[in-house]
Write a protein that binds this DNA or RNA. Structure first.
Lengths: 230, 230
DNA sequence: GTCTATAGTCGGATAGAC
DNA sequence: GTCTATCCGACTATAGAC
């Protein structure tokens, strides 16, 4: 991530809001890597190529920057997932949506999560922040949860309920959906152990494809569906 | 966790090693809750009811205490899992171990992990530390990985390989075992989201039983086994 | 072995010049 | 809006009395 270590003075003041953006980028990277406590305001300002006092000026303080980073994650994830979730949500409104159709939509969504979403360069950073908020929630957890976790969960629950022929509020439906998400998360929660065990250097296209095959096969078995989903 | 907030001077010096133990207990709790950076030596000494300088005396410094905490986790987990892993390892040495027998052993192990291991009072603390080491490994990761993650993984891979009729080094075997562990981990990685969604206050016996039912059913389906495992 | 006192460093915040 | 200089508290580490 070669993000302007040397300040590019010729490009400064192209916009009054640029320092704001640069600080959020720096916050994303450094809060993700070192956690809220581990990232100092001096590190953040230096990485962003802005003055230390700008943090107070633009965000009121370190905590304000952290919350702005959480909101930025919500916007980014929303931009990627939003259209797909909207499409599924629309399909779910149709009473006639069949079990097969629901399963197909679920497969599409899961495959997107595995091969696209989790292969993005920023995903590790996002997940580090989200994981820490899960363990020790701060004000930022509400932003992340309402911003994209709940919307995504509701779509997953809706599809799972249709496939299982159960109500959307059935705890069994939610538990099963969580368990499936857990299969995907495992590879991003335990990257060090997975890579050490499988002797992978990172998650490249081949590795993601191997993960996709195993998880999609598991999902097919869990819902007792025939092998017809790519 | 009412752990001696008021120092009990009458019980001091019962053993020369007591401050060591108390510091490790405090380290477990505070490193788990606040991370390495977030837990200060002052907090640690106060919680343990020992003098600040004892950290240097017994462990050489804050880092030494952290590594001692990692070793303590390995010992505790080893004490709980060790006998069970040894039993399975012995069974795996027998050439004649059938697919059904392997599956039964796997079920036993997974059910133990879900209902006993993950319901223990210290598990959250252990998992917080392990999770942080996965995201940002330090010297402690090697202690944790070699201490119990690798031994447990090898047993899981061995059983999975027998059930699938594949070699133990087949990447598919390892990926599938990881995916199953992911289903269990999900409920401890995302406790805040799970509890908020299901409106659970915590993981009591009933909640663990619901999780167990869903995951064991998934595992049965994944390996296409009949419904004969408790 | 235990404790007090303090050195030396680094943290976030901010006043005030420009 | 931007930047320098500085405050003050908190941190880890450690010297030295007992």
């Amino acid at each position: 991530m070669p993000f302007r270590i040397i300040r590019d003075r010729t490009r400064r003041k192209t916009s009054a809001e640029e320092p704001r953006k640069r600080l959020i980028e720096a916050g994303l990277e450094l809060f993700g890597r070192y956690s809220f406590d581990g990232a100092s305001t001096r590190m953040l300002a230096e990485r962003a190529g802005v003055n230390l006092a700008s943090i107070k000026y633009y965000f009121g303080g370190k905590e304000g920057l952290y919350l702005a980073v959480a909101e930025h994650i919500v916007q980014q994830v929303g931009g990627l997932l939003g259209p797909r979730l909207a499409k599924v949500r629309q399909a779910l409104r149709r009473e006639a949506l069949s079990k097969d159709q629901s399963f197909h939509l679920l497969c599409e969504l899961l495959e997107f999560l595995i091969t696209r979403f989790l292969g993005l360069p920023h995903t590790d950073t996002w997940l580090s922040i989200i994981l820490r908020e899960q363990q020790r929630p701060t004000e930022a957890f509400g932003i992340l949860f309402e911003g994209f976790m709940r919307p995504m969960d509701e779509v997953l629950f809706g599809l799972t309920a249709r496939i299982m022929g159960a109500g959307q509020d059935d705890p069994d439906v939610k538990l099963r959906a969580f368990a499936i998400i857990g299969q995907i998360m495992m590879f991003h929660i335990s990257p060090t152990a997975v890579r050490r065990t499988l002797k992978w250097e990172n998650y490249g296209p081949e590795e993601l494809e191997a993960i996709r095959c195993v998880i999609m096969d598991d999902v097919r078995a869990i819902f007792a569906m025939p092998r017809n989903c790519s």
